[in-house]
Simulated scan of single mutants.
Amino acid sequence: MPVHRRPRPTIALPPASIDAGAEAADSAARLQAPGPWLMMLEGRAPWEWAALLAALPWLRRLPPGDGHPVLVFPGLGASDITTLPLRHFLRGCGYTPYPWRQGFNFGPRHGVLDATRAMVAQAAERHREKVSLIGWSLGGVYAREIAKEQPGHVRCVITLGTPFAGHPRATNAWRFYELVSGQHTDDDELLALLREPPPVPTTSIYSKTDGIVAWQCSLNDPAHPLAENVEVHASHIGMGMNPLALYAIADRLAQDPAHWRRFDAQGARRWFFRTTHEGPLAAASGR
């Protein structure tokens, strides 16, 4: 969902680029929000919390983190309370997690983006190293855009069920977003900019059984050398405490940015994870 407006491009694009952009916009427009059955499945979130508790002994066997700072963004209409399990997990892994501290996420209200930019810069200065950004749903849009603005301060970006690749109306939250943010979701030019991946390692964790966001909206272009997609079995509102999602997060945070490699879903992992090798355009056309 849109975070802010950038200056409109003034450079004329060649016909091939115009056609590709029009095709991407058309495919995004064809996407539909998840139906009633998937929305009903969002009720499994408490079971994901229970699964996390049961999986803690397994998760504690993960390699310890290096202590670098991690800023966690909540989803639309949520606050830092919802990211407590995730931040507690990160601290237990050996990282230094930070909450968003901007209250409820009701969109890019006045001062929110400036405060968030300052938090990233301050954390990087305090720790004298780059900051990893984790964003849940709309929070992932913030994480991606800040990484584009401050690549010198950002180590990597991880998003959870974030709708950056499709139209916001391919979600079941767009009306609520417009209501609480006061913004419209029909700026195709801005949406095209949001699809661009950051210039740092970027992982999108998504679920094909997401009841809020059409899963195709969460796909990075796999042709980008620093972007990837990892599929897990999770609900949207439970993704931040889903043990499979947390495992993938820990695996990604442990990567050395200078020698970054995509998530390995081979071996025993193939029973729990999938890596998507098609972009959002192909996935939308093959729905």
Results as ranks from 00 to 15, higher is better:
129 E>D: 11
129 E>A: 04
281 L>I: 10
169 R>D: 03
89 F>H: 08
193 L>R: 15
192 A>V: 10
65 G>P: 02
267 G>Y: 04
260 W>T: 00
219 L>G: 07
210 D>E: 12
225 P>R: 15
232 V>H: 04
87 R>G: 03
48 E>L: 01
73 F>D: 01
85 P>F: 00
37 W>E: 11
191 L>I: 14
62 L>M: 14
87 R>M: 12
30 R>S: 06
172 N>S: 04
161 G>D: 04
113 L>Q: 10
261 R>Y: 04
280 P>N: 10
183 Q>P: 03
279 G>D: 09
136 W>D: 01
114 D>N: 11
73 F>G: 02
262 R>C: 07
131 V>T: 06
263 F>V: 09
266 Q>N: 13
145 E>Y: 02
31 L>V: 09
151 P>D: 07
67 G>H: 06
27 S>F: 11
174 W>S: 11
286 G>S: 14
143 A>L: 08
150 Q>I: 06
114 D>T: 11
64 P>S: 05
183 Q>D: 12
95 Y>E: 07
271 W>Q: 02
43 G>C: 11
115 A>D: 10
58 W>K: 01
73 F>C: 02
49 W>K: 12
254 A>T: 10
173 A>W: 02
169 R>T: 00
138 L>M: 09
238 G>V: 02
163 P>S: 05
170 A>T: 04
223 A>E: 13
175 R>I: 00
128 R>Y: 05
242 N>C: 09
1 M>F: 09
237 I>F: 02
49 W>V: 00
16 A>V: 04
115 A>N: 14
100 W>P: 00
223 A>C: 14
183 Q>G: 07
272 F>H: 15
253 L>Y: 02
34 P>W: 04
249 I>L: 06
253 L>T: 02
236 H>G: 08
287 R>I: 03
127 H>A: 12
48 E>C: 05
168 P>I: 02
121 A>R: 14
5 R>D: 10
190 L>D: 09
126 R>A: 09
192 A>P: 08
50 A>D: 07
41 L>C: 06
276 T>S: 06
21 G>E: 15
280 P>H: 09
236 H>C: 06
194 L>D: 14
203 T>D: 10
228 E>Y: 08
181 S>H: 08
46 P>R: 13
61 R>F: 02
113 L>I: 05
155 R>N: 06
72 V>Y: 01
277 H>S: 02
190 L>K: 12
23 E>L: 13
49 W>M: 12
56 L>C: 05
164 F>A: 01
72 V>T: 10
111 G>D: 13
117 R>K: 12
6 R>Y: 10
259 H>P: 00
88 H>W: 11
